[in-house]
Design a protein around this nucleic acid. Structure first.
Lengths: 250, 250
DNA sequence: TCAAATCATTGACCTGCATCAAAATCATCG
DNA sequence: CGATGATTTTGATGCAGGTCAATGATTTGA
């Protein structure tokens, strides 16, 4: 069974306490552009939904009728070629806004890689919200700019970095994201499989696995469990990630 | 000498006819969000500039004080690794808005690959414009979304496509862009060198050259000159670009 | 007009990562 | 549990595209 609510569920509250007011992801999502007083307006347009691991909830090429805001869990965003080759363009976790596209069809697919909770906005309802709350639009533009910067960084990775550098960049980014969320440990947990890491980094499963093994053999990381990585030498990791010593052999 | 104005220059007009009103690129840029009546307001904030081929006008990591809107010519946008490896993330031609970044430093560098004319906006002046013209902000968000979609497509290319597919995608996109600008011929002119194409596609100069040669040998394109490509079989090109027949040998 | 510099093409060879193929480990559930 | 299937690791081998090295072609400038 896929149960998706490991935290206490707040059921059928009085109308005054909207689900938006209780949302853990609010402060880190675009919704923080809406003042507390206006949260009910927001809550009226946002329909909470839950998807089990493996469920596809955005499909490339389909009519783009809805926007989503992830409040819990992680989804992979990806594009595919007709013969099945897949490129994951990003992982969306709590606070991530999905569907930013002017076109009337989705440009990518999205699938839950662990139980995902999100809020759904219809295109039309979002338009009304944007007209009523210019701050929300500003916030959305900011978000889009940040994603653009991340996308450029990923292009550098995919176009010019070696397998070692790609995996180091991936781990380095994850550590930084965890730190930004207040988790300052040296261990990160990876909700995605090796196959998904490979599809994100433009590599194969085997190369990802071998590179993990080599990092471990070099004493730079440990692998406490299948989905945990402990970074032993963060400076070294960041150095490799940024492409220093491409041809050094230390 | 680098002279950059092959078209008649409009000099020192009466204040009533602003440079924005005469701008060829206006209708295809974010500036078309501003009504004709308000053009003077826009012109007062936009300072025209010219850069010769080879000039760097945005440098990654520098303080991001200005935004730019290209009105003529082409610039390459790129990121570099410390050892010189370069990834071009895009080519910006007339109508392209540059500098979209929330951070206070530029995330990429920009260099003119042919004489470039552009309008410069200071961060502060742009902010005022955005506050006064919400439509401009909406337009900017649209633009950012479109670039995001293009970036995702490029990630698919860099992460999963073969050299043949990459070059075919590049040519296919260029043909489509030309068509969108009203040029419906089967010949495209490339303002960039082979090295720049390579840095855009995540390949080497040699591989780009060899792939061009093979396409020519297969009768799918001709190369009338160094910077022109004529597409003989557009359907074939689009097929290869979209990754069909990865393992076909026709 | 010609020399020098830049850019493009072509060829020979090499390597990092992909592919193919087991084996080992882990997760799920009857 | 213990069996079954999924995931990960490891090994052997192959190849697409990189590297190195000339040679042509085109542009630039004196």
């Amino acid at each position: 069974m896929n149960t998706c609510a490991p935290r206490p569920i707040v059921v059928a509250q009085a109308a005054s306490a909207s689900h938006c007011a209780n949302c853990d992801a609010r402060h880190r999502s675009v919704c923080n552009a809406i003042s507390t007083d206006d949260l009910e307006r927001l809550a009226a347009s946002a329909i909470p939904k839950v998807f089990a691991k493996g469920q596809l909830f955005i499909e490339e090429g389909e009519k783009a009728g809805d926007f989503f805001n992830v409040t819990r869990g992680t989804a992979k965003l990806y594009k595919m070629l007709p013969d099945g080759r897949q490129q994951i363009t990003g992982f969306a976790s709590a606070g991530h806004f999905l569907g930013l596209a002017v076109s009337d069809t989705y440009a990518f697919s999205a699938e839950a890689i662990e139980p995902v909770e999100l809020c759904r906005f219809s295109r039309s309802k979002l338009r009304v919200l944007l007209d009523d709350f210019p701050a929300l639009e500003k916030r959305l533009l900011q978000t889009a700019c940040n994603e653009l910067v991340a996308a450029q960084e990923q292009m550098l990775l995919l176009g010019r970095k070696t397998a070692r550098e790609r995996l180091a960049s991936f781990l380095s980014t994850r550590i930084a994201e965890a730190a930004a969320c207040g988790e300052h440990g040296s261990t990160i947990s990876l909700p995605m499989t090796r196959a998904e890491i490979a599809d994100y980094l433009g590599l194969t499963i085997e190369t990802v696995s071998r590179t993990f093994t080599r990092f471990k053999a070099e004493g730079k990381i440990t692998l406490p469990s299948r989905d945990e990585v402990q970074i032993c030498d963060l400076d070294w990791l960041n150095g490799v990630a940024s492409g220093q010593d491409h041809h050094a052999f230390a």
